[in-house]
């Protein structure tokens, strides 16, 4: 089958959109997954401590 411009455009316009939506749903699930809350809370506070040495 020959891949011409119109084929690619059609592919992009349909699957590109699905890809975008699917990706967005995954991100939403990740961001709002209940058990991730603790991890995010820890991450945002841990940069504030004044410890200036690598951990062993």
């Amino acid at each position: 089958m020959e891949i011409d411009h119109n084929t690619l455009v059609a592919f992009s316009k349909s699957w590109g959109l699905f890809y975008l939506l699917g990706f967005f749903i995954c991100v939403l699930i990740y961001a709002f997954w209940p058990s991730n809350r603790k991890r995010f809370d820890r991450a945002k506070k841990s940069i504030l401590d004044q410890d200036d040495k690598p951990w062993k």
């Binding site: 891949i3 011409d4 411009h5 690619l8 455009v9 592919f11 992009s12 699957w15 590109g16 890809y19 975008l20 990706f23």
Partner: peptide, 14 residues
């Protein structure tokens, strides 16, 4: 995502 999106541009000379 980008490639799906920009793929048509590689054939845009068509």
């Amino acid at each position: 995502g980008g490639i799906i999106e920009i793929a048509p541009l590689f054939t845009i000379d068509g």
